[in-house]
Design a protein around this nucleic acid. Structure first.
Lengths: 186, 186
DNA sequence: AGGAATATTGAATAAATATCAAATTATTTT
DNA sequence: AAAATAATTTGATATTTATTCAATATTCCT
């Protein structure tokens, strides 16, 4: 095998690696784009009084989600969000009383990849997750919905989540459950 | 008392009766024009799937109520009617009967019956109460203030309360405490 | 990988809804 | 009963929301 053959093979390999990488980025971009956005919307509506789609648009922009009102209209329809008048004369979007289970696979990983999850530590039976400011309740919602068989419940502040495991659940169970390996970068 | 005095009194009485009657008619006319219409609207919405104000307009026309969309918009706002998407892709106006506010105080069972408290489970010494979104801190406040001899403190998120009992307090104690705490008033 | 079938999205626009200002109607006061 | 006040309604319009259509982007199959 001569020098040029080797260089050729190297090029091909690098190309492949690049393609896989690109594909992953695309995949990631997709994950971010609908499922996760809907997740975030539902979290926003749970914690904030939003009176119009324009308003929601601005909040999403602040979180780096760039969409148009048309998309929001569709998202809200999907979520069956109702617009209801308030006593103060304004309006509010409300989620249907029963929260949809929503499979949301990959969402937790997405957040971790973002660096939204900073750390996870235990204190006795309890686990404490530190997040970037503002992310706690969004992530906690994920945990609540994805791991009810391990977790009794979560309590989220602004940048801290308290995770309360069920009796008999080990630290390892929790670690595994949350793909902790990803969160240990820095 | 002479003849003319009697006639005078009669006149006055008739006058009064007329006035009362007139007032009633006026009242009735008024009743028809807003209060009654709103009543009808609420009946219609209770029994029919209405997806837009135009649609509601037509139904009202059939019942001899002539109004404009502008008025309906205000009526619906007054009634706090929400517009919500249905699974079939259409929309429906719904009366707020389902979104009733939290009763300020009631028994624990009442709270559960109302759906504000969804569950109470233990993990080791700790108790975790799940509530409907938004209710947690209101309920936690009650617990904090009414049962300090059993409870060290509580931490409330949006829909979860962590109850930290004092040492030596049993699960049964907590359950009993909850019932006492929420059974004071009716 | 390549191509058909699906799904998502945004721009433009249609449709629906909320609100303003003026007019009308009812209510109260004098 | 007339004037003053308040409430209700409407036509016009501004604002908001839903949908259509075309352009990607994605998934599913082979």
């Amino acid at each position: 095998m001569n020098k040029y053959q080797i260089i050729l093979i190297e090029s091909i390999v690098i190309c492949k690696i690049y393609c896989i990488f690109a594909a992953n980025i695309n995949n990631y971009a997709f994950m971010k784009n609908k499922r996760n956005r809907i997740q975030i919307i539902s979290e926003i509506l749970r914690s904030t009084v939003v009176g119009s789609q324009e308003e929601l648009l601005k909040i999403l922009n602040q979180r780096q989600y760039e969409v148009t009102q048309a998309t929001l209209s569709r998202d809200l329809k999907l979520l069956k969000v109702a617009k209801t008048p308030l006593s103060n004369g304004a309006y509010k979007y409300i989620l249907p009383s029963y929260n949809k289970p929503l499979p949301s696979s990959g969402s937790f990983n997405t957040l971790i990849a973002h660096g939204a999850v900073l750390s996870l530590e235990f204190s006795g039976q309890l686990a404490v997750i530190k997040t970037k400011p503002g992310y706690a309740s969004a992530i906690a919602w994920d945990i609540d919905n994805k791991s009810t068989e391990y977790v009794l419940g979560t309590i989220a502040g602004d940048d801290t989540i308290l995770v309360i495991p069920r009796e008999g659940v080990t630290h390892e169970d929790i670690l595994e459950m949350m793909n902790i390996t990803f969160s240990e970068k820095e």
